[in-house]
Design a protein around this nucleic acid. Structure first.
Lengths: 134, 134
DNA sequence: CCAGCAACTGAGAATGATTCTCATGTTCAG
DNA sequence: CTGAACATGAGAATCATTCTCAGTTGCTGG
């Protein structure tokens, strides 16, 4: 299955590095732009490839927005979900042990296996709500 | 804001009708193909427009798959979530009062308002699991 | 230290889903 | 019935993402 021996390249390190230095979610294109801005020339295709690889390995978080964009972020430890402000994009990590349990149990009740789930909460954070009211 | 007076057209009815006659989730293109198959000539753009309108009105369910496709289905009554087989696409509706409560409470704890959420469980149904094993 | 090859890269083309354009067709009020 | 606003649809345009493939490079055996 795993025929390839992954090589360590400057580009892959650049991607990992920039992810490690920021805590926000950005699209592949966003990270690509950030890399260019800091002077690391890495091709867009490579950014996509690396991000996907890291995501598959579970080393970074993936979030799919309503507009169909996929955003990535350095993964803090463990499995968790997100509370995202739909106005400013601020993200809060939430633990959801109860939800995990519920998802697994529910799926099992219907005979489903190899279960995975998506749980994201979108809303408006206090700051944006105040701004909107102003 | 609502400058337009929505008119009732043959095309819109065709879309609503076919949705009402099926219970599965399909992509806009899938519904478009189904319409053509039954002899209702409706443009793809119109299918997209109508589906989006119905979704905005909350009259149909929307589901975004991992591959980035958006699927639609006639909405049964009430709010609920889905358990989707990643192989055959079979969908089971699950009630999740607990999860609703959790989402609302969690969001409120962080000062978020106007909360909305996405909860989907993906897995492999018993039938597909058996087929894969065979 | 060097050769050689497989894995990696990147520019741009290709893809696939969705949205937009705008000339033409329809619905509905009067 | 008539006009005009709204809807439609064919195809072009977008947008994010993936693919292609020739050129580059990390790594391992010699």
């Amino acid at each position: 299955m795993s025929s390839g021996v992954r090589r360590l390249t400057r580009q892959q390190q650049a991607v990992s590095d920039i992810l490690a230095r920021h805590t926000d979610f950005r699209s592949a294109q966003g990270w690509h732009a950030a890399l260019l801005a800091q002077g690391s020339a890495v091709g867009l295709a490579t950014v996509y490839r690396t991000l996907q690889f890291l995501a598959d390995e579970g080393r970074i978080d993936v979030l799919r927005t309503d507009s169909g964009e996929t955003r990535y972020r350095a993964c803090s430890v463990g499995h968790h979900h997100h509370l995202v402000c739909r106005d400013c994009g601020r993200t809060v990590e939430v633990d959801a042990a109860d939800v995990e349990r519920w998802a697994t149990t529910t799926a099992a009740a219907y005979g489903f296996t190899a279960v995975d789930h998506t749980v994201e909460i979108f809303g408006r954070c206090a700051t944006c709500a105040a701004a909107a009211r102003g």
